[in-house]
């Protein structure tokens, strides 16, 4: 059985079927990410003044990742344009570049995640709080490289003069004097819960895109020799999805990293 309208446009919609399906899917995705962005805005606006974290993420790495994703949108468009002008070799180069850019993005993101997972805030029995990266942890002591303050509030705004004046050093803390140990995981606070949920969901979308593009770059590209127009449409669909995923990041970056 042949699936209709994979190449030619349906008379009633004016589009081939996969494009209609993809836009319906993207509409549901807009609602999914729209809900998360709305949650972010409401929770941030509702947070008491001065209690929303600032400067907790690595801006140079976030900027680099933004450049990578914008570049990948350009290369996937070039890959589609190459097929439109019957240049299969160029298509392979551009889609391969898109894949490399996407994998590099995920590599940098996983580095950022690893950094957050090794970042701890330790409250001592004395009331002092130590915030930093875990160097060593044994049954009787904990070594952190970071800063110390009287209250966890001192660590909220990391762009403030007060935070920048804190001395970075290594702290060896006896387990007996430790009251609470918290990693920079989603349960730590609302900001981190939103950060992990939104970037994690975005990363999952990237993984999905990489799998599909990897298939079209590898075994799936054989279709070009039997049904070139159908294959070109498939790449257009993959490109539309990829642009959506990149667009989500273009909004995530300023919201989570800068504001």
């Amino acid at each position: 059985m042949e699936i209709p309208y994979t190449v030619k446009a349906r008379p009633d919609t004016g589009l081939y079927n996969a494009k209609v399906g993809l836009w319906l899917f993207l509409a549901s995705e807009v609602m999914l990410f729209g809900g998360l962005f709305s949650s972010y805005v409401l929770l941030r606006v509702g947070a008491p003044g001065g209690l929303w974290p600032r400067g907790w993420l690595n801006i140079p790495l976030g900027t680099l990742n933004t450049i990578l994703l914008i570049s990948s949108s350009i290369t996937i468009t070039f890959a589609w344009a190459a097929l439109k002008s019957n240049q299969f070799g160029r298509f392979k180069v551009f889609l391969g570049t898109t894949l490399l850019l996407a994998i590099t993005f995920l590599g940098i993101k996983s580095f950022e995640y690893r950094d957050k997972l090794s970042h701890y805030q330790v409250t001592l029995n004395s009331g002092q709080v130590v915030d930093g990266h875990l160097v060593e942890r044994t049954a009787d002591h904990l070594v952190l490289h970071g800063v110390e303050a009287d209250s966890p509030k001192a660590f909220l705004d990391r762009r403030s003069r007060e935070f920048r004046q804190l001395q970075h050093e290594e702290f060896k803390l006896a387990t007996a004097e430790v009251k609470k140990v918290e990693a920079y995981k989603p349960r730590m606070n609302t900001y981190l819960a939103l950060y992990w949920t939104m970037t994690g969901l975005h990363a999952l979308h990237l993984v999905g895109g990489i799998l599909v593009m990897g298939y079209f770059w590898g075994p799936g590209s054989r279709m070009w020799h039997t049904a070139p127009e159908h294959f070109t449409n498939r790449i257009e669909i993959a490109g539309l999805y990829w642009h959506f995923v990149d667009l989500v990041w273009v909004f995530l970056f300023p919201v989570l990293y800068l504001l």
Partner: peptide, 29 residues
């Protein structure tokens, strides 16, 4: 909407975001 149209929209939004980041950076500096 074709990939061409979405690409144009995407680049327009990215450009606006880049200008926004630029202003944010200069203001903070």
């Amino acid at each position: 909407m074709s990939l061409k149209a979405f690409h144009v929209l995407f680049i327009t939004i990215s450009s606006a975001m880049a200008f926004g980041c630029g202003v944010w950076g200069i203001r903070n500096h």
